[in-house]
Amino acid sequence: MSKTTITANGQTKNLSLEPRRLLADVLREDFRLSGVHIGCAHGACGACTVHVDGVPRLSCLTFAVQCDGAEINTVESLGGDDAHHLLQRAFREEHGLQCGYCTPGFLMTMAPYVEEMAAQDRMPEDAEIRHAMSGNICRCTGYQSIVAAVRLAITQRRNGESTQ
């Protein structure tokens, strides 16, 4: 067992962990953050994407013991219980989700991308947006509505709307 301190969505826990436990499992079970979804457990679908110290990371390819001292953010922290983050609102507006299983991964992958584009004050081509989400598999939407949602969010951010 390894002593590990992890902060997830602002909540800090001192955990005694078996090293093999995946970050995804620890977030789901020890922090009860069930918005972290496991889609493939081999790093090929993006459903488990969370932010580790602000950077999107596959939590199924990360051992929780590697995150000692790290700040983790999951989809639960993005826009709260009402899912009111700008990108979430754009997903709702553009029908960017159907079954919702891949959605937390898409949101956590693309929220920083929206910020990056807004910071550059640039509307990327659709091909760039598609490339940015190429590590995430959605089986329901056909992706077009997710691309539309990302475009909408970038437009709104460039127009000065806040994320919350």
Partner: peptide
């Protein structure tokens, strides 16, 4: 349904 599916509150 979108709100619970996007907020992490859905129960699979």
């Amino acid at each position: 349904e979108d709100t619970r599916l996007m907020s992490g509150a859905a129960k699979y």
